[in-house]
Nucleic acid binder design. Structure first.
Lengths: 137, 137
DNA sequence: TACTTGACTTGGACTTCGTCCATTGTAGGA
DNA sequence: TCCTACAATGGACGAAGTCCAAGTCAAGTA
């Protein structure tokens, strides 16, 4: 995620105050925010920024592969700035907390040809569910 | 899923026309329906059934472990009556089609203790994404 | 069989998350 | 500095899902 802005500029991204702020918010250690949380934090730095712009910008960042969307069932989608290092997610069924995890092995290789039904499979998403230490206490 | 109704009755479920219809709809080969699709099909058999009842009933079936919820990112949740035989999903990024698949190996075992961060992990959900033969054509 | 009661259903209002669009603003090249 | 195509705005809209007060009914009891 570092030097995200530089990378985007070379791809022809027009650099506006709003986009800069959204990128900065994601770049913090506030990981896995919802769009509304991103908006709330963005507003602290740029009070006039609109929800629509936050959604637009997040959508573009996802398309560009700079940010990953995570659907957790816990209502709103979350945005994960750690899109460059492949990883999966571990989430707490009680409070919705998310952690990035790195399982060993390659789940893609575990899907035999006979189980692919003619699909060209390109991606795997692995979500572990459990109870986090705080909620277990 | 067979004899679902019998199983539910022994668990103290009150058997109403509405619940019976929802169970029947899921029991068909129409797999992975959204709540609205379930409602649409239920209405064909029982015109007065309300959306709220469909949502309630689906929620109960999920709690009882008879039906699994699948979040596909493609907007609405889908309901999978095949909850008794563990499996994962393969879905088409273009049209949203879903298939049940059975990868080899156990992804739970692939998450080392050091990557569990104190969570008690109990479940894994594995989603393969790709393009189905129809959409590739 | 009729009665009773607590569980179930209803439908409409409401909430949340997200998209759309016409208008206004502005980044960055000439 | 000026132009213009791209971006931002905000308010209306839409889809998915939840909530609730009032009415209904399954099934246990007599």
């Amino acid at each position: 995620m570092s030097d995200l802005l530089g990378r985007l500029r070379t791809r022809g991204w027009r650099l506006t105050a709003q986009r800069r702020v959204v990128a900065e918010v994601l770049d913090g250690d506030h990981i896995h925010l919802t769009a509304d949380e991103v908006h709330a934090r963005a507003v602290r730095r740029l009070p006039e920024i609109s929800r629509a712009t936050v959604y637009n910008t997040l959508g573009e960042l996802v398309n560009l592969g700079e940010v990953a969307e995570v659907s957790t069932d816990h209502r709103a989608k979350r945005y994960d700035p750690n899109a460059h290092r492949p990883h999966h997610h571990l989430l707490c069924a009680r409070c919705g907390a998310i952690r990035d995890v790195h399982p060993v092995g390659d789940p893609l290789a575990d899907l035999p040809e006979s189980e692919r039904f003619g699909f060209s499979v390109s991606e795997v998403e692995l979500t572990y569910r459990g109870v986090c230490p705080d909620c277990a206490a």
